[in-house]
Design a protein around this nucleic acid. Structure first.
Length: 287
DNA sequence: GACCCGTGGAT
DNA sequence: TATCCAAGGGT
């Protein structure tokens, strides 16, 4: 049995009941979910997604609101530029695509905040187009089951897409199922820390297992920088202050948020440059 | 390719 | 407590 067949059969029996997998969940909802899921766990996305789609059922609805409303509704999902990008993407979809999320990967890739993963995820999951979908879960599953390595190592779009393509069935519907199934396997069984090989449909064919689980030795991804004391933390504090205020936040109020003036000014300038903060006569506010 | 960008739970 | 990790993308 092929990897696609084994993982697909497992998926049909074990998949989680997630909102974006519901029958009739539209392309817009899938696009919003994919943006929210970028580097953000499923459990934190679900409630925010449902509120978002209730308020903005189509791209044009979102485009009709100020971008700051999107940033505010994003709340604490993190990486608020995703909210800004999603608003910008919705505007393009409303104005140039007839308020319909594109199904073409090339079109999707031109939208802000949509990269190699998200473009193919939308094309595959929302429209059934046959494309390899590669996220961190897929990379890990293929590294182990196929390449026999414990970790995927640094990403390479070309190599990663080719690796998944080699596993993908020809039939588009089967390919869509395989994409979802391999992702799901990586998310709940072939996990980064403690893989549950006893529950894995690939246990008998896994190259990493067959090799005796050799430790990973290749190049390691750069370690994530410390968050405490970082510019990220300062940006987060400023954004939280702006989200929580209906009126412009004064320079004095921002000064109270962080003692280091140089770092504070750098963070604020960065937020303004990113379009997440607008400087006005009365202070600083969301766009 | 390296680095930056939030937030919070698990280990 | 410190580090890891989470359906990535932009520069």
């Amino acid at each position: 049995m092929s990897i696609a067949e084994a993982v697909g059969a497992w998926f049909l029996q074990n998949r989680r009941d997630l909102p974006w997998r519901r029958e009739g969940f539209g392309a817009w909802g899938i696009l919003v979910s994919e943006i929210m899921l970028q580097q953000t766990p499923v459990v934190r996305v679900i409630p925010r997604l449902e509120q978002w789609l209730e308020r903005w059922p189509t791209p044009a609805d979102l485009a009709a609101s100020p971008p700051g409303d999107a940033v505010r509704a994003w709340e604490r999902l993190g990486y608020p530029r995703r909210a800004l990008n999603l608003h910008a993407a919705a505007t393009v979809i409303a104005e140039r695509h007839g308020n319909v999320v594109p199904s073409d990967v090339g079109d999707l890739l031109t939208l802000p905040g949509i990269g190699d993963y998200t473009a193919r995820a939308v094309a595959s999951f929302a429209y059934g187009m046959r494309h390899p979908v590669v996220d961190t879960n897929v990379r890990r599953v293929l590294a182990r089951a196929v390449a026999g390595r414990g970790e995927a190592g640094p990403p390479s779009t070309r190599r990663d897409l080719a690796a998944m393509e080699a596993v993908l069935p020809i039939d588009p519907a089967a390919a869509q199922l395989t994409n979802a199934a391999v992702m799901e396997l990586g998310a709940v069984v072939c996990t980064a820390r403690a893989p549950r090989c006893d529950a894995c449909p690939l246990v008998d064919s896994c190259a990493w297992r067959a090799a005796g689980y050799p430790p990973y030795e290749g190049p390691k991804a750069a370690a994530q920088k410390r968050f405490e004391g970082s510019d990220r933390q300062v940006r987060g504090l400023i954004m939280a202050e702006l989200r929580g205020s209906d009126i412009p936040v004064t320079a004095l109020e921002i000064e109270q948020l962080w003692p280091d003036a140089a770092q504070r000014d750098r963070a604020l300038a960065g937020l303004i440059a990113d379009g997440l903060v607008v400087a006005g006569d009365d202070g600083f506010e969301l766009p």
